[in-house]
Amino acid sequence: MIVQTSVMLKLFGAVLIILAGTAIGFVQAASYVNRSKQLRLLIYSLQRLETEINYGQTFLPTALIKSSEGMEQPLSKIFTETAQLLEDSKELSMQEAWQQTIENVWGHTALRQREKDVLLRMGTVLGMSDAEDQQKHLQLAQLQLKSEEEQAVMEQQRYANMWRSLGTLGAILIVILMV
């Protein structure tokens, strides 16, 4: 009876470990998938912003909100919150508002430091030059993000599946070692 219970417990523990290992693997894999997806969305929204600024001559706060449409939560916040800050406080400069929002939101995204630098650099000139110049800066940012995206897709192909199997296999290894 006692032996049976301990076997049951061990079995239960083993299942738990395997589940946890698999979960870790999937979360890691998802971060690769998310990163390339978010980069893609970010590029789309910068394209939209470029159109709004260059052809629509839309005021920046409105342009930011319009380009955030079609983006998902953590990322769209970069645009909507900046616009909100500009409309509300009236004490921040565009650059400060942009920086503050990015710092707040960044932790919730799957993006990395390199993309952050691209966006922050873009924030220093956003809005405050003529349309031609704005277009150049926005296109530069898109170009840089695109190369990041290509890399992200490659990493995703290479590591996402690996992490998925690695999680489960690693967990099984631990179970075997413990038995």
């Binding site: 001559q57 005021f59 565009m94 809005g127």
Partner: peptide
């Protein structure tokens, strides 16, 4: 920035 509504380009 405020005069131009953060949009010098417009």
């Amino acid at each position: 920035e405020r005069i131009t509504n953060y949009s010098l380009y417009a």
